[in-house]
Nucleic acid binder design. Structure first.
Length: 509
RNA sequence: CGGGGAGUAGCGCAGCCCGGUAGCGCAUCUGCUUUGGGAGCAGAGGGUCGCAGGUUCGAAUCCUGUCUCCCCGACCA
């Protein structure tokens, strides 16, 4: 069957991923190492994610604010584990002026060296912690819950668009609480928010769980994640939530007077999701014809393409399209007005149709003179592009019932995309392996391996290091300990010790 | 950051070894024909060959440096 992309998922998944991004006009190279230009269609998807996530964040009583891009090195140095975790990937500002280098170029002015270097934030715990120290005096000031939408920079060695870029966009929530129980409750609330968001908005099923010790955020006491399975079976960590204990509060001085009159350090949390989720959407829903955008995050849900012939009949077609767009736009889907776009650009309608299909617009409607005369239209749904015979599954409904049913149609596409991905996730987690040979056999013989969930002994220290090395030899990593896993049983295949909990293992991005 | 590959028109590529007027396909534009599923024919426009030096009468081509991308590894909350 002929497809819109030249690379298929089966032939070269990594190349396919890049082709989708290019073909859907989502993002492109910027000329700056590891940084991308996010184009309107990609950014429009991000704006949708922002809006729907922001609604949830605010509904939880968290307020938005904004903190500086630059963080004094001294702030950052206060939490030792945090520094160790990020020091190797830091962008540092050392000068504030340029001068001519005598060769026609510019160079930092040695006279303008900063007294204290500024780092470009890789995350904002330290600078937000400093503010929280000022804002929190009394137990009455807690909990303090803030969030910011921002860009952060991490100088990664190897970058991939949306999945791991030097600069990325995200939201980072930061909260301070009077005690451990309250902070842990917030950590898990944020995790559940991410799980629900991923499932219902991104139509991307995930497993929520706790990261093993060695995968924790630097400085955290506990890290939780949502893990999504891509179409190549690899895991993508799509959101994290951390219980930070009191170490960041101690480093920043977030101290308060309790109702009993003594002093205590706050228990803090942080949680984040980023533009990486867009990479997850691509690798969850994309197919060999490009992207498929879940209707909830599609910048436009319905595209109307008039089939113009540059003759006197065009005016009637455009009138018909305009009134159809208005009627569709007055309908609701997924709790919002339907987002309709009338593509009035000149050009061949076939070319425009494929452009929108590659972008993944959920529904493409084409209108020709015959439709105007008959009061009908031609509709293509992106989640079910082809008929069994390989031709486009275009339908030709009457206008009025189509308009009345658009909300239900978009909702069914949203549901359908989720169901497809959920079936794939469920089918590719193996839960009955009980020994190391079984793990090796699974990953060596399965053409597109997914994940295995095993009972393990939760080793720590050197024993954990040994286990990490052992699975690394198979290019595997421990993903998380699912919150809703069944009880552990038997012996840990990795250590031979009695198992205490269930953990997911798989290849990861 | 180590090993490998690549950068030539909007996109995909050839030309480079062996230096001598910048090529092809798709896309774009024009004309004619066509017209309900990515139309056909004819013609046209578009590139300081990633960037900076060097060698040479002459550099896309040879040399040096540098930037960016891709693959493998290391790294990756």
């Amino acid at each position: 069957m002929k497809h819109a992309l030249t690379t298929t998922r089966a032939s070269d998944f990594a190349a396919w991923y890049q082709e989708v991004i290019a073909a859907a006009d989502m993002a492109e190279e910027s000329g700056v190492r590891g940084c991308m230009v996010i184009r309107p269609w990609g950014y429009g998807i991000w704006e949708r994610i922002q809006r729907l996530m922001d609604d949830r964040i605010k509904a939880a009583g968290v307020q938005n604010c904004y903190f500086p891009l630059f963080i004094p090195l001294s702030y950052f140095a206060k939490e030792a584990e945090h520094v160790d975790g990020f020091a190797k990937e830091m962008a540092v500002v050392t000068h504030h002026r340029l001068i001519a280098d005598g060769k026609g170029g510019l160079t930092p002015d040695p006279e303008a060296k900063l007294e204290e270097p500024l780092i470009v934030r890789p995350t904002s715990e330290t600078v937000i912690g400093a503010a929280m120290a000022r804002w929190v005096q009394s137990w009455r000031d807690l909990p303090l819950m803030v969030n910011q939408w921002a860009n952060v920079v991490r100088w990664e060695m190897r970058t991939r668009m949306f999945l791991r870029t030097s600069e990325f966009l995200w939201q980072e929530g930061h909260t301070a609480h009077a005690d451990r129980a309250d902070a842990m409750k917030e950590t898990l609330r944020a995790l559940e928010m991410y799980r629900e968001f991923s499932e219902t908005v991104l139509a991307m099923p995930v497993i929520a769980g706790e990261k093993p010790e060695h995968e924790r955020f630097p400085g955290a006491e506990a890290t939780y994640s949502i893990e999504a399975m891509m179409q190549d079976g690899k895991a993508l960590q799509a959101g994290t939530s951390h219980y930070l204990g009191t170490s960041f509060a101690e480093a920043a001085g977030i101290r308060f007077q309790t109702s009993e009159g003594d002093h205590a350090f706050a228990h803090t949390t942080s949680w984040g999701t980023s533009t990486r989720m867009i990479g997850g959407v691509i690798m969850t829903h994309g197919d060999d014809d490009g992207l498929r955008v879940p209707p909830a995050i599609a910048p436009f849900q319905v595209i109307i393409v008039p089939m113009l012939r540059e003759d006197e009949g065009d005016a009637a077609i455009l009138d018909y399209c305009a009134s159809l767009a208005a009627e569709l736009g007055a309908q609701s889907a997924l709790g919002e007005r339907v987002r309709v776009h009338l593509d009035k650009r000149p050009g061949k309608s076939a070319g425009k149709r494929w452009e929108w299909l590659k972008k993944g617009a959920p529904v493409v409607v084409e209108i020709g003179g015959r439709d105007v005369a008959a009061g009908k239209l031609a509709a293509i749904r992106r989640d079910a592009l082809y008929r069994d015979d390989g031709k486009l599954a275009t339908e030709f409904p009457e206008r009025a019932p189509f308009v009345a049913g658009i909300g239900a149609l978009l909702e069914s596409i949203q549901t359908n995309l989720h169901a497809e991905a959920k079936a794939r996730l469920d089918a590719n987690i193996v839960r009955d392996i009980v020994d190391w040979d079984g793990i090796v056999h699974y990953f060596k013989t399965t053409p597109v391996p997914g994940w295995v969930e095993i009972s393990w002994s939760r080793p720590t220290g050197a024993a954990l290091d040994a286990v990490v090395e052992k699975v690394k030899a198979l290019k595997l990593t421990m993903r998380n300990v699912p919150l809703d896993a069944v009880a552990a049983s038997g012996t840990c295949p990795l250590t031979g010790e009695p198992a205490v909990e269930r953990i997911l293992i798989g290849r990861a991005y």
